[in-house]
Design a protein around this nucleic acid. Structure first.
Length: 837
RNA sequence: GCCGGGAUGGCGGAAUUGGUAGACGCCUGGGACUUAAAAUCCCAUGUCCUUUAUGGGCGUGUCGGUUCGAGUCCGACUCCCGGCACCA
């Protein structure tokens, strides 16, 4: 048959089985019966135009795993939905001049068609769409719960603003100072915005990472870095000014042991001291000028690559070091962040590189107070000469020039200094996190409106739950202008105050779409529910998610937000679990020409032509075979041909056709060899499936196929003949059952139409290996002399060492290596012998 | 700078607790079948040396160590990828 015809047939076959699985509801779970449940979840996608090979890899991975779980007999929930709100959809809609609701719907239709064509199965009865009022009603409900519990609040703050997307962004959406979506350099703006108090959960979010032993280390590390815990002291420096309040500046430090080395205080330009001490500051004009100058320079806090530090001394006031009562100068600088700690630091130039650079530049004293321990080779900074470019000694060590603390090591000194200051009320133990609150308001149209009303008389009021959803009006000019497009929709904006019935206005910003996705895994269990966001009872039965699969790009964003929301819902006693995802698998990207495959980079390869030529199964198989699923892979379409060949081979042996070639390999394989291979393969594949090592699972199936196809029954009697035939059949069945999750249509076709099974290949219970068949009576033993391979000999299993010795010493091939006396004879049973001479 | 991951043929990648390095597939070369091509099948395919074999040397980023034996364990280093970064 011609190749093109075969491919066409195969595609028809594929379509037929896709309909069949639909019909038998292969992917529909029985939610009422959670006893043997398994929740396998793929991160729901943004609806985008035609899916490429990179997308295909993601969904095929999940599908293969889901099908494997079905064959294990689990009551499997594997739902799919659409993260349909948000910038990608909106930007695309603006570009194509159509409404995002329409373009989203179109994209979803295309994607569903493609997924279906690839044989990817989901519980479509549970489908959700985050841009539908039936869904975002409950996103708004979630916001109200956060608001009621003091975890959603509005404040004026320095925020990240993307001048291209015309909206503010969360810290997590700023990657290296650029917009996560469009790559534009982020600006800082001072705006009133809505925040979620994720920082209230910082300790839990950090500590509970230790419980997630089935998460990749990489992701946990990223989250740890992002949360960024530091332990130290908040130390009070009094200010020597008569009657001013407050009379002190507080600093945060993790190195209280270096307190004697503090030679000045460095404050952020936003520190309150400037206004508090306005009258005492003798050079106020100059200071003000400096602050203006820095602010003008810092449109973006990220655009200062040289990081040349600048500052100005505040004249007229001094700070007093609480540990030795020294008067030290106070500086305003551009290298201290207001957002972290207290916005003020104690500068210790001898033991902090940044302070050292600053001190050298402005000729401030450098005082060494930490000496390296004897065995440390690190050089130290002496107080002279300060013009020389030196490294600060930042390690811990032994205290010097530190009064009563001299001779203590850093650890002891930290404790003592801190304790003594605490007694005087001049220090407090503090744990500080780098994590900032989550900025959730967006000045964009395509998102869920924030359910808040502002009344000039009654103030800020939450929309009553019975009035949800606050509908996103469809008829709105939605081009972004730096403030929410909803402002110009008067029908939306104007509303009667729910309290005083007077004229009031709605909040016009919409919510970050990451709120939509922070709880969607709960909604799949009751997508139609009109009375509540999710069903707690069902959620407690089905969650946490057993296997979560998605891209590593969400390591901090989505995966941190979801953990936060789950912990919040736990505290409300709406769920009884504290972590949403038990096991996380982060799949690798598909790379083309060294870059991630993406439409914007123009290096996209679509699977359609390949599927046209080889069928979906060959492409699926190739994608899974080409690399371990968690690794990035450089795409190369060439190898698909090999998978096509492999499938043909399987088809041939299943149909009992022998190879046409004359010179077929002379195999002396026995029945036992084939049976052993069958069971070895079952064992190996089952182990690999559990870890999602699909590439090695497939290669071991290939080995079995190779052996089965070169197997020639050497039967003489009729009885033997039927036995060997049944063994061949067993091999074929094994191959199809093991291969089915990867090449589902192909295996289902041969299973039902060639092997005449009545039920789906996925309804057959998972094969288990029989250890008894794996054991060999004759084993291949490796013989080494001085660690070098010299011979391979076949011996009986568990041979006695005496006997083995005799065989080896009589072996012709080994004689020339064993001319010298044997010093040692090391034998690892059934594996290797090493003779040392 | 700190944290995490990695480096194996021409290529993608295999290798249980340390025990035959290169499975499986691709590419390439040779052969069979064919008028021819496609398809299929067979053989070869890390590298070097003596092409006599059933031969030998060297080989998993570099250097050293532990061990009868190291891709795997330990120490130092180089390079690559990812995260955080003026975070006190």
């Amino acid at each position: 048959m011609k190749k093109r015809q075969m491919a066409k047939d195969r595609r028809q076959i594929e379509k037929r089985w896709q309909d069949y699985w639909d019909e038998i509801k292969l992917f529909e779970p029985d939610l009422k019966n959670p006893k043997h449940k398994y929740y396998c979840l793929m991160m729901f996608p943004y609806p985008s135009a035609a899916l490429h090979i990179g997308h295909m890899r993601n969904y095929i991975l999940g599908d293969a795993f889901a099908r494997y779980k079905i064959t294990q007999g689990f009551n499997l929930l594997t739902p799919m939905g659409w993260d349909a709100f948000g910038l990608p959809a909106e930007n695309a809609a603006i570009k194509n001049n159509i409404h995002p609701a329409e373009s989203t719907a179109e994209n979803i239709a295309t994607m569903k068609k493609q997924l279906c064509q690839w044989g990817v199965g989901y519980a479509w009865s549970k489908e959700i769409n985050s841009s539908f009022p039936e869904y975002y009603k409950w996103t708004q409900w979630l916001f109200l719960q956060l608001y009621k519990n003091g975890l959603a609040y509005r404040k004026k703050a320095e925020v990240n603003f993307c001048p291209s997307c015309q909206t503010v962004l969360a810290n997590e959406q700023v990657i290296e100072g650029k917009c996560e979506r469009c790559g534009t350099i982020i600006e800082q703006k001072y705006l009133k915005q809505w925040f979620l108090k994720i920082t209230a959960y910082a300790p839990k979010l950090l500590n509970d990472l230790d419980l997630l032993n089935r998460w990749p280390e990489r992701v946990k590390t990223m989250q740890r870095n992002w949360i960024g815990r530091s332990e130290g002291d908040e130390i009070t420096f009094t200010v020597n000014s008569s009657n001013q309040k407050p009379k002190f500046v507080k600093v945060f430090t993790t190195r209280s042991d270096t307190l004697f080395g503090c030679t000045y205080l460095a404050l952020s330009i936003k520190h309150a001291i400037i206004t508090n001490y306005k009258l005492q500051i003798t050079n106020y004009k100059k200071v003000e000028g400096y602050i203006k100058q820095v602010k003008a320079r810092n449109v973006s806090k990220y655009n200062n690559p040289d990081k040349e530090k600048t500052g100005i001394e505040i004249k007229g006031i001094k700070a007093i070091n609480p540990v030795n009562n020294e008067q030290i100068p106070i500086w305003i600088t551009d290298y201290v962040l207001m957002e972290y700690g207290t916005g003020a630091i104690m500068a210790v130039p001898a033991h902090d590189q940044r302070d050292l650079e600053f001190a050298q530049k402005y000729n401030l004293p450098i005082k060494k107070v930490i000496q390296p321990t004897v065995n440390s080779q690190q050089s130290t900074v002496n107080s002279l000469p300060r013009t020389e470019n030196r490294q600060a000694y930042e390690e811990e060590g032994i205290l010097v020039n530190s009064g009563e603390y001299n001779g203590l090591n850093s650890q002891e000194a930290k404790k003592k200094i801190s304790a003594n200051l605490q007694k005087k009320g001049l220090a407090e133990k503090k744990v500080i996190y780098r994590l900032r609150d989550w900025l959730i308001s967006r000045q964009r149209y395509w998102g869920s409106p924030i359910p808040i009303i502002y009344c000039p008389k009654c103030g800020t009021l939450p929309v009553s739950e019975k009035d949800l959803p606050v509908l996103l009006p469809k008829d709105t000019e939605f081009k972004p202008r730096g403030e929410s497009p909803l402002k110009r929709n008067k029908n939306f904006l104007r509303i009667a105050c729910p309290k005083c019935k007077g004229a009031a206005e709605r909040e016009i910003d919409t919510m970050d779409t990451f709120i939509d996705s922070s709880w969607y895994y709960l909604r799949y269990l009751s997508p139609e529910d009109k009375n509540k966001a999710f069903d707690s009872k069902l959620a407690n039965q089905w969650l946490p998610v057993d296997q979560y699969i998605g891209g590593v790009e969400h390591a901090i964003l989505h995966l941190l937000y979801s953990r936060f929301i789950t912990k919040f819902l736990y505290d409300l006693k709406l769920v009884n679990f504290q972590e949403p995802f038990l096991s996380l698998f982060t799949q690798g990207m598909v790379i083309k020409d060294g870059l991630k495959m993406s439409k914007s980079k123009g290096n996209v390869i679509y699977p359609d032509a390949l599927i046209e030529k080889y069928g979906a199964d060959a492409v699926r198989l190739y994608i899974l075979f080409i690399a371990p699923p968690d690794k990035d892979v450089e795409w190369n379409s060439k190898g698909v041909e090999g998978m096509w060949r492999f499938l043909k081979k399987v088809e041939k042996i299943t149909k009992g056709e022998r190879g046409k070639g004359k010179g077929e390999r002379e195999e002396k394989r026995t029945e036992k060899d084939l049976r052993r291979k069958i069971h070895q393969t079952i064992k190996k594949v089952n182990e690999d499936m559990e870890r999602l090592h699909f590439n090695t699972a497939i290669s071991s199936i290939m080995e079995l196929v190779n052996q089965a196809s070169s197997y020639k029954p050497q039967a003489t009697s009729l009885k033997e003949k039927s036995e060997t035939c049944s063994l061949q059949l067993e091999a074929c069945k094994t191959i199809l059952l093991l291969l089915a999750p990867f090449a589902p249509h192909f295996c289902e076709e041969l299973w039902q139409n060639t092997l005449k099974n009545k039920e789906s290949v996925f309804k057959h219970s998972r094969l288990k290996h029989n250890p008894q068949f794996i054991e060999q009576e004759i084993v291949l033993l490796i013989v080494q002399v001085n660690g070098k391979l010299r011979a391979k000999i076949e011996t009986e299993r568990n041979i006695e060492e005496k006997k083995l010795r005799k065989i080896i010493l009589n072996d012709e091939r080994l004689k020339k290596w064993l001319s010298k006396p044997i010093k040692k004879f090391i034998s690892v049973p059934n594996r290797i012998v090493n003779i040392v001479i």
